[in-house]
Simulated assay, not measured.
Amino acid sequence: MNPTDQQTTDRYPTSLRMLHWVRAALIAGLLWAGWHMTGLNDEVASKYELYYPWHKSFGVLAFLVVLTQIALRLRTPGLPQPLETLERYERFLSRLAQRAMYALLVVVPLMGYSMSSTYTMSDGVFFFGVNLPELLAKNDDWFVVFQWLHKVLAYTLLGLILLHLAGALKHRFYDQDPQRDVLRRML
C-alpha cells in the first residue's frame, strides 16, 4: 500500500507520545546538567565524579531514545501532518524546526561522545556502569573542536526547543481555536 493512501490521524500513537515526553525530560535534564556542571569550579569533586559520568549516561540514553523514536516514525504509517488550519509559513517553520531538532538530537550526543573519546584525560564514555568503547583516537586538538561543536549545537537545540514550545503554547492559548491546537496531538 502506498504511504499516501494511508489514513492519517489527529494524534500521534501512544508509543511516540510517550517517547516524546521521555525524550523531552531527558533533554531538559541534560541541558540543565551540562550548563550547571560546566559552570562548576574544577576543584568541586562532584563535577567529575557525579555530573560528567551521569551526563554521559543520560546523553547516551537520550540518543538511544531518539534513534528509537526516528525508527518508529519511519515505520508508522499515517502520522499526523501539519494542520491545514495553520498558516503556510507556520507549517513550513514547524517542519523545518522539527527536522532540525531531530538532526541535533542525533548530532549533539555524537559530539559529546566524540569529546569524551578524543580527550586524553577522559576515562571514556560511561553508560550506567559500563564504559563504552572509544572509537576515536585520543587527540586534544580534536577534543577542542568537538567540545565547541557540542556546546554550540546544544545551545542551538535549546533555541529550537524554546521555539517549539512557544509555537505549541501560542496555538493552544493565544490562537484560542481548537483547530489550531497542535499540543493536543502529543497529549
Rank of each mutant, 00 (worst) to 15 (best):
D5F: 15
D140L: 01
T9W: 02
L31V: 14
L158M: 12
G34Q: 01
W148H: 13
V145L: 10
F92L: 11
L163G: 06
L50V: 13
L183Q: 03
R75Q: 12
V60C: 00
A154S: 15
M37I: 08
T85H: 12
E84F: 13
Y174F: 12
V182P: 00
V144M: 14
L31S: 05
V152C: 01
L74I: 12
F126Y: 15
L50P: 00
L163V: 11
L83C: 03
V125G: 01
V108M: 08
F58K: 01
L149W: 12
M1H: 12
R184N: 04
K138T: 07
S122C: 01
M111A: 14
P82R: 12
L93D: 05
L74H: 10
T120I: 09
D181N: 14
Y119E: 06
H36F: 14
N131T: 13
Q176K: 15
L153F: 15
Q179A: 15
H20D: 11
P3G: 06
L86Q: 08
D177S: 14
D5M: 14
Y119D: 04
P77T: 12
L132M: 09
A97D: 06
R91F: 03
G112F: 03
L64P: 00
T156F: 09
F173S: 04
F128C: 06
L183S: 09
V66F: 02
D181Y: 03
F143H: 15
S114W: 07
A25H: 02
T14L: 15
Y89M: 14
L40M: 15
A100T: 14
N139C: 11
W21H: 10
V152F: 07
S57I: 09
M1N: 12
Y51Q: 02
S57Q: 07
R184T: 12
Y174D: 05
M111G: 02
R11D: 02
